[in-house]
Each structure stands twice: as structure tokens, then as C-alpha cells.
Design a protein around this nucleic acid. Structure first.
Length: 217
DNA sequence: CTCTTGATCTTCT
DNA sequence: GAAGATCAAGAGC
């Protein structure tokens, strides 16, 4: 016989799942976003997603930075038509498009508009609010400000991989909740691309300390 | 703080 | 064979 499990947790559950850093206000979740939320222009969805909460198996936080891509945009994966990698972008809105970046990282997009439009929002940064201990373990980090401050970082923190490509955003393991209250939105040029570099299609939460990179003043 | 570079896989030329 | 919707570590200031 193997050793029996402990009769009670060694660490209280509410400590393990501590959702907020010390001193921070509790998070209020808005209403669950349905797939139809994404069936609009990518430039309408983008600002509405800033301040919304993204959870993946209960781990995640506030979306503070996204970038828009569209099939008419030379920087978009969909620009040259459908391929095995980008086929989800050509499908209906409200699904996840996950791809491998630089051979190492995973990046997650939310498909928008309508089937065939091939537009999507790259999720670039979160303010961690839920499951911070889990994120720290996955990212081997103590500090919270860098847990999700980049598209490859946040997929590692949340546990998103290619296995989750094409999953619907309004069903588990995904869960999205509308922003509660109002925030100031800023826009600027996108990061890390070499084509269409002047399009101001990066959207962010003004003043956030959790961005992948500050927006120029 | 900024700048440079290696890691490593998919897609496209 | 090269480029790419990136990141972390190391060097230099």
C-alpha cells in the first residue's frame, strides 16, 4: 500500500488561491462575454476588451493590452490567405487562435468580426488578478508585474498552448468577463513587427503598470 | 537603465 | 535558407 494522503491541506486553500496582491482592491467580475461580443469590427472590440477579465481554468486577470490584425494588413498572419496554422482566423468570431512564436512561445488571439474576415486581437498583456501563486510557479517569478507583461509570458502564466487553438471563448477552460466601470484607453503603433509598422492598432489601458511596453507620451 | 544576442520551430521564398 | 505578432540573460553605462 502507498502512503495515504494528508487528511487536510497543508496550506489553507484561501492562501493558495489568494487572488490579489496585498493592499489591492478586490476584483469585481462583469457579466460573462458571449461569442457574439466578438462579432464586430476588431477596432470596436479592442477598446471594449481593455479592462475585461480573461481567465483560463480560473487563472488570469485584467486585459491591459491588445493588438488588432486584419486580412488586409500585411503584418497579419491571415494576409496571404488560409494555411493550416491560421485557419481559425478565417472561421467565425469568438474562438481562440494560438500560434507558435519564434519557435519557443505560444501567443493567443481572439477571432473577431465574421467568418472569412480573418481578423483577430493578439492578447499582449494582463494585470494578474486570479491564481497569482500558480502563475508565479509556472513563470518561476516572485514579482507580479512581469508575470503577464507580454504575449508569450501570459500564455505561459495561464497554461495556454496549441492544444487550445480553436477553442470557443465562452466555454471552459476560457472565461471572459466584461469590464466593470470605465478606463482610459490609449492607442499606438504595434510592437515587434516589420510590416505596416505605422498603423496605430495597439490598444492599452492608460497608466497600467502591467503593459509589455509603455505607450509613448 | 539600454543594447545585444541566443534559443528554436513554423512558414514562406 | 531566411524571417518571424518573443523572451531572458548578460554586457555596458
Amino acid at each position: 500500500m502507498g502512503s495515504s494522503p494528508p487528511r487536510f491541506p497543508l496550506i489553507p486553500t484561501k492562501m493558495v488561491q489568494n487572488p490579489r496582491l496585498p493592499g489591492e482592491a478586490p476584483i469585481r467580475l462583469g457579466k460573462a462575454l458571449k461569442r457574439s461580443f466578438f462579432g464586430r469590427s476588431v477596432h470596436e472590440v479592442a477598446p471594449d476588451l481593455i479592462g475585461a477579465t480573461l481567465l483560463f481554468n480560473g487563472v488570469g486577470g485584467l486585459i491591459v493590452e491588445v493588438e488588432a490584425y486584419h486580412h488586409t494588413d500585411p503584418a497579419a498572419h491571415s494576409y496571404r490567405g488560409p494555411t493550416p496554422r491560421n485557419q481559425v482566423m478565417f472561421g467565425p468570431p469568438g474562438f481562440a487562435y494560438v500560434y507558435r512564436s519564434y519557435g519557443i512561445h505560444w501567443c493567443v488571439n481572439f477571432v473577431c468580426e465574421e467568418a472569412g474576415s480573418a481578423s483577430a486581437l493578439l492578447i499582449r498583456a494582463l494585470e494578474p488578478t486570479h491564481g497569482i501563486a500558480t502563475m508565479r510557479r509556472r513563470r518561476h517569478l516572485k514579482e507580479a508585474h512581469a508575470l503577464c507583461s507580454g504575449p508569450g509570458k501570459l500564455t505561459e502564466a495561464l497554461g495556454i498552448t496549441i492544444e487550445h487553438d480553436a477553442l470557443p471563448l465562452d466555454q471552459a477552460p476560457f472565461s471572459l468577463h466584461a469590464r466593470v466601470g470605465s478606463v482610459d484607453i490609449v492607442a499606438g503603433v504595434r510592437i515587434g513587427i516589420t510590416k505596416a509598422i505605422d498603423l496605430p492598432w495597439r490598444y492599452g489601458m492608460k497608466g497600467s503598470k502591467f503593459l509589455s511596453k509603455p505607450f509613448p507620451v
